[in-house]
């Protein structure tokens, strides 16, 4: 059996006495596309933080891509090169050109001189240009990132993920603040990034989008995993219950 992409075993996280996650146990298989749903403050972002190693569990164990997340060191860095992270705030480098922002996705594989050299070439690397073509921004490669619209910046962040070529994709509310058409476009790109062995875990606020683009839905409420179902078999009324909307 291939190891799971993500495995949490009895994980609890507390922030200053407040429990953010309580005794969460779950496995996500390689290649699955999983949406994490739940009201604000339910622990969705904490869950993703656990998977990138920025949040430490108080109890329980977390393993990602078959390895336990050890704090710090070369091993964590090595693991991180295989994890792609994206969020609504795309955290691009504003004054840098679009193509160089995309190149930043390969920094883990590049030596310092190679990285500096690429920064000096206005056209960036061939991989970055190819990725920008894939997200439909081939004509903007020379522009400064902060001159782009937020939707375009979102796509630059996607192109950066493409060149990083991660096995596990973590997206924290990747479409909040985007208009519906753009949200569909961005999620489509995320869900269909080339490569069959790629696992996607995305926190979403829109259940319709979750059902449309993911195979499996997880529901968090007050730090507890209360829903885990294939998207195709979502029980009626489960979402109302999750969000506490009176029927």
């Amino acid at each position: 059996m291939t190891p799971a992409a993500v495995a949490l075993d009895g994980v609890s996280v507390t922030y200053g006495g407040t429990a953010a996650l309580r005794d969460v146990t779950l496995q996500i298989g390689v290649g699955e596309r999983v949406a994490v749903l739940g009201p604000s403050g339910a622990g969705k972002t904490t869950l993703l933080g656990l998977l990138t190693g920025t949040v430490r569990p108080d109890r329980g164990t977390v393993s990602v891509l078959g390895r336990p997340l050890a704090p710090g060191g070369a091993q964590l860095r090595q693991l991180r090169t295989r994890i792609g992270v994206t969020a609504a705030r795309s955290d691009l480098v504003g004054p840098l050109r679009v193509v160089h922002n995309v190149d930043a996705g390969q920094l883990a594989r590049w030596s310092l001189p190679r990285a500096a050299w690429s920064l000096l070439r206005p056209r960036g690397s061939a991989q970055a240009r190819a990725a920008l073509e894939q997200v439909g921004l081939a004509d903007r490669i020379y522009e400064r990132c902060d001159a782009l619209s937020s939707g375009q910046q979102q796509r630059v962040a996607l192109a950066r993920l493409l060149v990083q070529d991660p096995e596990l994709l973590l997206a924290d509310e990747p479409v909040s603040g985007l208009d519906p058409a753009l949200a569909v476009h961005v999620l489509g790109l995320l869900a269909d990034l080339p490569g069959s062995a790629r696992t996607l875990v995305a926190t979403l606020h829109d259940p319709d989008l979750a059902v449309r683009f993911c195979d499996r839905l997880l529901g968090l409420r007050a730090g507890q995993l209360v829903l885990d179902t294939p998207a195709a078999a979502l029980p009626a009324g489960a979402l109302q219950e999750l969000y506490g909307i009176p029927a």
Partner: peptide, 9 residues
């Protein structure tokens, strides 16, 4: 850093 880029790069 989250995607594993070394500190200097």
């Amino acid at each position: 850093r989250a995607q594993g880029a070394p500190r200097l790069q």
